[in-house]
Design a binder for these strands. Sequence first.
DNA 1: AAAACGGGGGC
DNA 2: GCCCCAGTTTT
Length: 215
Amino acid sequence: MPVNEISKVIEILRKTVPPHPYKSRDPFRVLIATVISQRTKDEVTYEVAEKLFQKYPTAEKLKDAPVEEIARLIYPAGFYREKAKKIKEIAKLIWEKYKGKVPTTLDELLKLPGVGRKTANIVLSRCYGKDAIAVDTHVHRISNRLGWVYTKNPLETENALMKVLPRKYWRDINELLVMFGRTICRPQAPKCDICPVKQYCKYYQEKESGGGRSA
DNA sequence: AAAACGGGGGC
DNA sequence: GCCCCAGTTTT
């Protein structure tokens, strides 16, 4: 797909897709909230994260919180035991090794437990203004459906997107496509009939010409 | 009732 | 690369 067409699709989505509800740009909060959101529907997880921050607002406080108490607070997000352990360990590392400041580079972030490329890139792009593409399953699925890239895993998608997606969109693409994926371009039964960019979508075109068979 | 869902890490 | 992880939502 040509670059100017990708830009057009993004501009349409920006005008039609609802804004992402999580607004904080505090690196510590974004980092912890993103870890909590892993493998869960993120509607719930931001409420859960706020409850956690009410009781433990900083890395200094969180590093001394009992794992069971963290687990109790984040329970609705699922995987609460393993996440609680990781969250506490992250808080401890940030406080002791990084003097209370969340690392600002990909390499350092990836050393934290429970932090992979998606989580690290969320922090880099949202909190530190770096040109990073945070690829989660929404970004992966939608990029492939639209025909922007043709890849089989998130890392490939990240690399391929860096070649075809104009740099000015990198930082915002995750929030935009997450909300698009939630409301229209869902994993199953996407609402193509009301999709504002279906005319630019490979998946939709194939569905139309392929006699109703899904791709 | 069963399958889909969503990141990271350990092997 | 494969497989596991827990609870909610969709089919």
